[in-house]
Amino acid sequence: MGIFEKLMKIDRRYIFVMIAVAIILPTIYEVRMKIDISEPVKRIYDRVESLKPGSVVLISNDYDPAAKAELYPMTLAVLRHCFRKNLKVLAMNLWPQGAGLVRMALSTAAKEYKKENGSDYVFLGYKPGGAVVIIGMGQNLLGTFPKDADSKPLAELPLIKEKGIKTLKDIPLVIAIGAGVPGIDAWVVYGKDQYGFSLVGGCTGVMATDYYPYLNSGQLSGLMGGLKGAAEYETLVGRPDEATRNMSPQSFSHLVIIAFVILGNIALIVEKSKKKRR
């Protein structure tokens, strides 16, 4: 068996080892790379920047720990941006297993910017129902979430009282960070289209292609796709963190995959020409 024939039938464990090396080495040596900012991510940053201090932002975190690597850095970067701008934040989940992650992100960002639960931010928690929850919030937010995640009556919290929030119409910007259904689609169809707030999104890398029609139609004002999107937002906020660090392992793993694809195709071409000659 020639080298090219062997290459065509390579044991996939060699590929696994090469991918592991491409991830581990850049992680250990912390290779830093320049992050280019894409237009859809810049639009989210600009939209948040355009809000006046004290404005309310709703962040819906519709994902679970499986998508933590890509979406948690987005949540954290967006929260840091909102707190730095002195915006008031409402956070919630449409996925039950995401509540712990949101609580973690809120406490991390709040500690950094000395923000207080109840007056600077409120965690609404998880509510089952998906799209129905969004419709409910559009009609009557306090009826849908009578209490926050710590069981305090929502109507009595300083943020809600001070800002007079009753429905989604009182919130100028919703940031939907989602890994599936219910997620960004539900916020577009049942939220943005009915109640008119500005909507921006964050999603996993594989899902990003699905949301470009919404971006083009203006139903989404901006979009962060995958770890790269999160790294871009961290760069814009000026707080490079987990996503920025993980860009080099991702870059090198992509390079390894491309190298294998090229090798596989060279082997295919050589084997084909050999067969022809025979």
């Binding site: 996939r12 696994f16 991830i23 679970d64 499986a66 793993s253 995959i257 294998f260």
Partner: peptide, 17 residues
């Protein structure tokens, strides 16, 4: 959950090849 999802990187690489 994070580990299960991370395994995808290896399988995608092998599938792409």
């Amino acid at each position: 959950q994070a580990s299960m999802f991370s395994l995808l990187a290896f399988f995608i690489a092998s599938a792409a090849y």
